[in-house]
Amino acid sequence: MAALLLGLATSTAALAASGGNLQQAGTDLGDRASLQRGAQLYMNYCAGCHSLKYVRYSRMAEDLGLSEEEVMENLNFTGAKFGETIGVSMPAGPATEWFGKMPPDLSLISRVRTSDWVYTYLKSFYLDETRPVGWNNTLFPNASMPNPLWQLQGLQHAEFGKVDAATGERPVTGLKVTQPGTLDAQGFDQVARDITAFLEYAGEPAALKRQSIGVWVILFLALLTFLAWLLKKEYWRDVEH
Rank of each mutant, 00 (worst) to 15 (best):
A39E: 06
T138D: 00
G79K: 02
Q211A: 15
L199T: 07
S212H: 10
I86P: 00
T27Q: 08
P103K: 08
V215N: 08
L183M: 15
T114H: 00
V55I: 15
S67D: 07
G214C: 00
K81L: 09
G100S: 05
E169S: 02
G93V: 14
N136P: 05
V215W: 14
D128K: 01
R113H: 12
K123S: 06
A47L: 06
V112T: 10
L6T: 11
A192H: 11
A3C: 03
Q211D: 14
Q190M: 04
T96M: 12
G30R: 11
S107I: 11
L149G: 02
A166P: 03
R237C: 07
Q151K: 13
R210P: 03
Y121D: 01
M43D: 02
A16P: 00
L223K: 10
D105I: 00
F188Q: 04
F140V: 15
S58P: 00
V217G: 06
L52V: 03
R170V: 00
G20E: 06
A17I: 04
L152I: 03
L8R: 06
P205L: 12
E200K: 13
L8H: 05
T96W: 04
S51T: 07
T130R: 11
D189H: 07
Y126M: 01
R37W: 03
R210I: 12
P171D: 10
A39S: 10
M102S: 11
G7L: 15
D63R: 03
N147Q: 09
H50V: 02
V71G: 01
R131P: 02
T167S: 15
F140T: 15
T96N: 07
D164R: 06
D63N: 09
R193W: 01
P141T: 04
Y201R: 08
T196L: 13
V239A: 14
A165V: 08
W117D: 01
K176E: 15
G48C: 04
L22C: 04
A14W: 08
M145H: 02
I86W: 00
K176L: 10
G154C: 10
R210T: 11
K209A: 13
A158S: 03
L149F: 15
Q179W: 05
G161Q: 13
T178Q: 14
T173Q: 13
G30D: 09
T167L: 02
F226C: 09
L221N: 13
L231N: 08
L6H: 09
R56H: 09
K176F: 04
Y201K: 07
A197H: 03
K162P: 07
P180Q: 12
T196S: 12
Q151N: 12
M72G: 01
A95L: 06
N147V: 05
D105V: 06
